[in-house]
């Protein structure tokens, strides 16, 4: 169970095969075009994909379906459904059947997953509510402030997200800036940190730009003559907004939802820092499996379940934006 940290022998084989396939592809391209063709410039990216995307996914799948000795097993998925499964099996041999029988089904993993999905949903919904008006404002050509707001949204992203999150901590803590202000105004201290609200705040703060920018892009690409035509035909500005502008910005919205939802579900670190470790999210759980417990197999199974869920939600979203107009992320 402890730190099975060496990769299986065939992973090196796979790497070698990938490399050979890559070289063969490059050679074939040169041969067919009798020289360097434009498509050849994509080859560094192809190599990158093979080494850093395909291989890790294959390894995750391998670990998810094997035990610590390397034999095929579905136990890791059983451990996902019943978080006490491994413990019960271990206790059966160490303490006897009677003790093992007292261990009920553990719902830690499922509960964490459901909680993560709920938090991600809340975060995405609030980001959309805040982000759409902001994007409208930024894209409005009559608004001189628009460009300034774009810059204001971008500047915080120059900083690392860990730093930004830790900065929230010193704002929210009991002796922090906001509480000092509240006290000075005679309103008294309030516990702002270490609860679900603080986690949600941290997530929204970090992911809001990913909602605003895709919507902003699709709004600023809109032909202004469309809303002018709507006005000519007797639409007031509210009607123009929800009959013309909103339907045409759907691809940007879909793209924004995807870009906020995905990192939200897999969030880790924010719950630990702003939530005080009271609540875990699925990302924290996976991290604990790999780093604290050294159990790569169950950790991989959890990651695989996570990837599957994201894939399903992406394919649903794709139906709403079949032409990939919102940047083709969904």
């Amino acid at each position: 169970m402890q730190f099975n940290s060496s990769m299986p022998w065939w992973s090196y084989l796979l790497m070698g095969a990938g490399l050979l396939a890559f070289i063969a592809l490059v050679a074939q391209s040169i041969w067919r075009h009798r020289g360097v063709h434009r498509s050849l410039f994509a080859s560094p990216y192809t190599l990158w994909m093979i080494v850093f995307t395909v291989l890790p996914v294959v390894l995750i799948a391998y670990y998810a379906f094997t035990d610590s000795a390397g034999g095929f097993t579905l136990d890791n998925f059983r451990a996902f459904w019943d978080s006490n499964h491994l413990m019960r099996e271990q206790l059966r041999s160490a303490a006897g059947d009677e003790v093992a029988a007292t261990v009920v089904r553990g719902s830690v993993n499922i509960d964490t997953l459901v909680y993560s999905l709920w938090m991600a949903f809340l975060c995405t919904a609030i980001c959309l509510l805040l982000g759409y008006p902001a994007a409208l404002f930024m894209a409005d050509r009559q608004m001189k402030l628009g460009a300034t707001i774009v810059v204001l949204f971008i500047i915080p992203m120059w900083m690392n997200f860990l730093l930004r999150t830790i900065a929230w901590m010193s704002l929210l803590e009991d002796t922090g800036l906001i509480n000092q202000l509240l006290e000075a105004m005679g309103l008294g201290k309030r516990q702002l940190l270490y609860n679900q609200g603080a986690v949600l705040l941290g997530m929204i703060y970090n992911f809001l730009p990913f909602m605003v920018f895709p919507i902003y892009t699709s709004l600023s690409k809109l032909d202004p003559r469309l809303s002018e035509a709507a006005a000519d035909l007797g639409c007031n500005s509210w009607r123009t907004l929800y009959k013309v502008i909103m339907p045409l910005s759907i691809p940007g919205v879909i793209s924004g939802i995807t870009m906020v939802f995905m990192p939200s579900v897999t969030t880790f670190f924010i719950p630990r820092v702003l939530g005080g470790g009271h609540t875990q999210m699925f990302g924290d759980l996976i991290e604990a499996k790999f780093l604290t417990e050294g159990n790569w197999n169950v950790g991989s199974a959890l990651s695989l379940v996570m990837m599957l869920l994201i894939l399903i939600s992406l394919s649903i979203l794709r139906k709403a934006d079949p032409n990939g107009e919102g940047g083709g992320i969904a």
Partner: peptide, 16 residues
């Protein structure tokens, strides 16, 4: 390994 698994699993229950 047995008791490590038990400690880990129980602690996760506390965390959740």
């Amino acid at each position: 390994a047995t008791w490590l698994t038990v400690y880990n699993t129980l602690w996760q229950e506390v965390k959740q």
